[in-house]
């Protein structure tokens, strides 16, 4: 696209009726300011997206340059005939649904506490944000140690409290391990949900609660009829963001379980990584990556739809 064409397009966007000499200079200046960001976006987002699309259409089975056969959509078809794909898809959906639901529920609770008139409120807020500030790799290593069936802190705690003296293998069976990874993920990400909700809570005028109280509403009714409806924009935003993030889960699985036991904690992103880098099936790995991208795109469309339907009124 030529510079003039871009200028014309921007002119149209910013609705400049006519361009004086000063206007043209401003447009050029705007383009100059936008160009670095545009190059970065092209280099780190658009080009890799395009390249992955191309790779997904070829039978690329090495990291090295070379000539590989064009296979069309066969890599995509392979995903749906791969017997390992459906279990990992199920693990991903389960992880996404349960972790997001728990993070949302706990996040609202924590936000309500942080919004209450507590002493040293800044301190509590700082403490709550700590798990989110930890790198996921550290979080995963921490929880792997906590869950260890031989010397883990969780078994130690249960024993000290005389709740159980058995050495529970928290990561020892597939379904339990998946749930324990979810707990680790919830511990880390509840704080970010809480902060989103807290921001929403602070926009609710106090007068509304006073009016509700004068109308005879108790705390529960106030929460259900005043707080929750007015929190819908914040909840919708954080719900969609967390859903997308959970769907792409990789690092905590890599650190905590390596996909085991018995492949019970493998997720789509982990499986994609394994196919591409461990097995050098870059064509198939790229197709899987595109399927993840399509799923995330679908979730983003839901997000935009909610925005448009007015559930997000006031949030742009």
């Amino acid at each position: 696209m030529t510079g003039m064409a871009i200028a014309t397009r921007i002119r149209r966007r910013i609705r400049v009726p006519t361009l004086t000499g000063t206007g043209t200079r401003e447009v050029r200046f705007a383009i100059a300011l936008l160009l670095p960001a545009a190059l970065v976006v092209f280099g780190v987002v658009i080009y890799p997206v395009g390249r992955t699309l191309v790779l997904s259409l070829f039978g690329v089975d090495s990291a090295m340059p070379g000539h590989y056969p064009f296979v069309g959509l066969r890599n995509y078809a392979k995903a749906f005939t791969d017997p390992a794909f459906y279990p990992v898809l199920w693990h991903t959906v389960y992880f996404t649904f349960v972790s997001t639901a728990l993070e949302l529920t706990l996040g609202i609770g924590v936000a309500m506490v942080l919004n209450a008139p507590l002493k040293a409120r800044w301190l509590w807020r700082s403490i709550v944000v700590l798990p989110w500030a930890l790198p996921t790799i550290v979080d995963g290593a921490l929880w792997r140690w906590i869950y260890n069936g031989q010397y883990g802190a969780l078994n130690g705690l249960l024993s000290t409290l005389h709740i159980s003296h058995t050495d529970h293998q928290w990561l020892g069976s597939p379904f339990l391990a998946l749930n324990m990874v979810i707990v680790a993920d919830v511990w880390k990400n509840t704080s970010i949900v809480a902060f989103f909700v807290l921001a929403g809570l602070q926009t609710i005028p106090h007068e509304l609660y006073e009016a509700a109280r004068m109308d005879g509403a108790g705390p529960v009714r106030s929460f259900l009829r005043v707080t929750l409806p007015l929190l819908r924009p914040s909840i919708a935003v954080v719900l969609i963001l967390r859903t997308i993030e959970a769907f792409k889960v990789f690092d905590i699985i890599y650190v905590m379980t390596g996909g085991g036991p018995a492949s019970g904690t493998q997720t789509v992103a982990f499986y994609t990584y394994q196919q591409a880098f461990s097995n050098q099936l870059f064509g198939y790995g790229s197709a899987l990556a595109y399927l993840i991208a399509l799923a995330v795109f679908a979730l983003a469309m839901v997000y935009l739809r909610i925005l448009r339907q007015g559930a997000m009124a006031g949030v742009r």
Partner: peptide, 26 residues
């Protein structure tokens, strides 16, 4: 929402990057 022009723009950018990426598959 996602206006048709933006959608076409995104598809065009993707097509361009795919074309460039396709210049050497390996």
């Amino acid at each position: 929402g996602l206006p048709r022009r933006d959608l076409l723009g995104a598809a065009g950018a993707l097509g361009l990057s795919a074309f460039l990426a396709g210049c050497g598959v390996g």
